[in-house]
Design a protein around this nucleic acid. Structure first.
Lengths: 212, 212
DNA sequence: CGTTGTTTTAAACGGATGTTTTAAACTTAC
DNA sequence: GTAAGTTTAAAACATCCGTTTAAAACAACG
C-alpha cells in the first residue's frame, strides 16, 4: 500500500471525523488514534487544532476553487457568451466530480464540511475561509449576475441565498435525509440523484420562474 | 421588572447561547453565569445538559405546533377544500408572528435553533424531537401532499427539503445577511420583506414550476 | 416557634480536552 | 560514523467540562 506521511494521515482522519461529528465534538485524541499517530503530532505538524481545521479545508477546497477559476477564465477568454445558471451550477458539479473522483462518500463529506463551515459558529475558521476564498466566491457571483441580468440586485441577492440555503442545508444533512427516505419510503438514493434535482431547482429559483 | 424563576432564567440564557454558539460549544457555566444562577441549578431543575436542551426546544416549539395543529384541524372540520401551498406556508408565518410576537430577534433565534437541530449531530436531541414532534411534522406533510398531488413521493420529498433548507438557512442567518445587504447594496430590509419573497419561492419550488 | 420540604450555594469529583515538555528515534549529509 | 536536523514518543500540564455532594438558606404550615 502507498506509504503516507503522518501529516497526511492526520488530515485524512480529521476530515472524516470533522465531517461526521463536527468540530467541537471531535477531539485531537480521536483524530490521532484513528490516524494511528501520536497525540503530539497534531501540534507539531499543524500548530493547533484550529490550524488543523484550516488545513483540512485548504486541502479539499483549493483544488476545487482552482479548477473552477481556471475554467471560468478560459471560457471568458474564448469569447463565448455568458453561461446560463444551469451551466454554472453544472460546472461546479462536474468539477466536484472530477476533483473528488467517483468516491461519492468523499464528495458527501466535502459537502458536509461546507455545511458545517456555514452553520457552526467557528469565528476563526469563518474568517480564514473569507480571507482565503472570498474572492473566488465574489467572482462566481458576477457570473450569476450575468446569467440573470433582468433581476434587480436586491431581489437577486435574496434568491441567491434561498438557493444557496437549499443546497447547503440539503447536502449538509444528506446522510440523515437519506436514512429518513430509506425508513419512510423504502427508497435508496445517491448523491448524484439529489444533485440532479437540486441544480434545476436552484437555477429556476434564481431566474424567477417563481414569479407569483 | 418582572420576576422570573431560576428555571426560566436558565432557559432564556440557554436558548440565546445555544442559538448563537451551538450545543457542544456552550457550557453550563456559560449558561448559569449569564443567567445569574448557581451552576448546580441546571442539574437540579433539569437533570442534565441534554434534558436542558430538550426543555429549550419544548418551550419554543410546543406553542407553535399546538397552534398549527389546531388551525389545520379546524380548517379540515369546516369542510373547506384543501389548502394551497401558499396558504399552508402563510399559515405557518402568521402563527410564528402570533406566537413569537413582533420580536424578530426571537424569531430569528428560533430559526437558528431549528437549523442547528437539523445540522448538528446531537443524536439524543434528534431522537427526542422525532418522538415529540414527528407526528405534527408528518401531519403537515400530508397537507403538502394534498396541495401538490401530482408530484411523485420521492420527488416531493426532496423538493420539500430544498424548500425547508432555503427557509431555515435564510432565516437562521437573517441577521448576517441583513448586514451584508446593508454594506454591499446600501439597502435596508425587514423580516416580513424576506418572508414575502420566501413563501412564493418555496411554494413554486415544491409545486414544480422548476421543471427543467 | 419549630418542623418539613424545597431551593440555592459553595466546593469538590472524576474525566476529558488542547497544549507543552523532554527525551528518544530516525534521517540526512559530511 | 558521527554530528545536525527532523520527526516521533510518552508523560505531564493546566484548564475546562458535566455532574454530585453536603451544608446552608428559604418557604410553607401546623
Amino acid at each position: 500500500m502507498p506509504k503516507s506521511t503522518t501529516a497526511e494521515r492526520i488530515l485524512d482522519a480529521a476530515q472524516i471525523l470533522f465531517a461526521t461529528k463536527g468540530f467541537a465534538e471531535t477531539s485531537l485524541r480521536h483524530i490521532t488514534s484513528k490516524a494511528g499517530v501520536n497525540l503530539a503530532a497534531v501540534n507539531y505538524h499543524f500548530g493547533s487544532k484550529e490550524k488543523l481545521m484550516q488545513a483540512v479545508f485548504e486541502r479539499t477546497l483549493t483544488p476545487f476553487c482552482d479548477q473552477l477559476e481556471k475554467q471560468l477564465l478560459t471560457h471568458a477568454q474564448s469569447g463565448g457568451e455568458s453561461l446560463t445558471l444551469e451551466e454554472l451550477f453544472g460546472l461546479m458539479v462536474s468539477i466536484a466530480d472530477k476533483v473528488y473522483g467517483d468516491d461519492s462518500k468523499e464528495f458527501s463529506r466535502f459537502m458536509r464540511l461546507m455545511g458545517l463551515a456555514y452553520t457552526q459558529t467557528q469565528d476563526e475558521l469563518r474568517a480564514f475561509l473569507g480571507d482565503r476564498y472570498g474572492m473566488v466566491f465574489k467572482r462566481f457571483l458576477v457570473h450569476i449576475k450575468l446569467a440573470a441580468p433582468e433581476i434587480p440586485p436586491k431581489e437577486l441577492f435574496w434568491r441567491i441565498h434561498f438557493a444557496l440555503g437549499s443546497a447547503v442545508f440539503t447536502l449538509a444533512s444528506f446522510g440523515g435525509l437519506q436514512e429518513l427516505l430509506r425508513n419512510d419510503y423504502k427508497m435508496e438514493v445517491g448523491l448524484p440523484d439529489v444533485v440532479k434535482r437540486l441544480v434545476p431547482f436552484m437555477a429556476a429559483g434564481i431566474r424567477g420562474d417563481v414569479e407569483k
